[in-house]
Design a protein around this nucleic acid. Structure first.
Lengths: 192, 192
DNA sequence: TTTTAATAGATATTAAATTATCTATAGAAA
DNA sequence: TTTCTATAGATAATTTAATATCTATTAAAA
């Protein structure tokens, strides 16, 4: 959030921002902003604030935007295609370099410049290309199976969009992006 | 998460579950599970646990799955199309009943049974159909403008997928689903 | 029938996150 | 130059969330 805001400020030629500015724009309180920026190692000047360009650099470093991780995506349904097309990820330190699906209609095709391979090529390619990040956008049913394949292929981090909890060894990081759960949270707020 | 797990348990014919079961499956601790279920009003029996079907009912009630909210979606790019196609939402209390875009290539077409209207039809349709939920899947640039349109059309809750903070009146609920930010969080965990 | 074990529910403790307050500093105004 | 003000940085207080512990209850085993 901070990063996106700062980039917009840079675009409009702003040189400095204060915590107060940021807090007002993002509906936060200034101490919260200061603490968050502090934790990234940002240093500001009293009466002036933080230098926008410098702060952006610090956040890019902290968030790891300077180093691009290559990722494999499995499940080229609508969501998989949307993620494959989403260019924003490359600014955030990740590039989807290949995608996988079992549908003969999709295998061999290119979506947004990304080739679709059959799932049985996953392990070999992942190991040869030293891929450590996997994205799962399959239906819930296939997700655990795909996760197992990813683990045995040397994947160390799984970004899971399937609405199911994955069981993986504890040294593999899983982050669930559960759209149904997110919707539930949203609706329960919106209905109040 | 609990709901999805319980539905799977029901599918395989499980009648009761204990906090310990759930915690083990979802990598939580049992007290956490008990507290969460308690907050939804669940009541269990010592030595037995919670009755699966009853617990599902309680969660459906708490999460509002029994009442379907109609929603309008703006921005029929890849992500918009993916959300429009995602049937899971209907189980979670929301149905996308119309979509909007300004591209002449998309207007009038049907995507997954959902008609695409030009944006200038939004206000009229929203008011006539009494729509209270809006989903934004436009690029960041257009998002604030769309949010303003939604607010003036009577929308009370905005589910925002554009990577930008929206300014809206304080009685309008906004939930941001920021994929870039989510990716940043994931990568910083996965890289450790 | 009595004992044991698993479990929910209640309470207490701890840890984490947030918010408030205080202090120092830099720049602008008097 | 001196005073004032906005601000970062530091510390303290508060609130919230998570975890641990204790108690009561139920079903099964002895």
């Amino acid at each position: 959030m901070y990063y996106q805001y700062l980039v917009r400020q840079r675009t409009i030629g702003q040189q400095f921002v204060s915590c107060t500015n940021i807090a007002e724009e993002l509906n936060l309180v200034s101490v919260q902003v200061r603490k968050d920026l502090q934790s990234a190692g940002a240093v500001g000047k009293p009466k002036v604030g933080y230098e926008v360009k410098q702060l952006i650099g610090i956040l890019e470093e902290t968030l790891g935007y300077n180093y691009i991780n290559e990722a494999f995506l499995v499940g080229m349904g609508n969501l998989g295609q949307a993620l494959a097309a989403y260019r924003e990820f490359e600014k955030c330190g990740m590039e989807i370099v290949a995608t996988f699906d079992n549908s003969p209609l999709k295998i061999g095709r290119d979506y947004f410049g990304k080739r679709v391979f059959p799932l049985n090529k996953f392990e070999n390619l992942a190991q040869r290309m030293n891929i450590k990040i996997g994205i799962i956008t399959t239906p819930a049913q296939q997700a655990q199976e795909v996760a197992d394949l990813m683990v045995s292929s040397g994947i160390e981090g799984i970004w899971n969009f399937a609405p199911i909890h994955l069981n993986v060894p504890k040294d593999v990081v899983v982050q669930n992006e559960n759209l149904g759960a997110a919707l539930s949270v949203f609706l329960s707020k919106a209905r109040k």
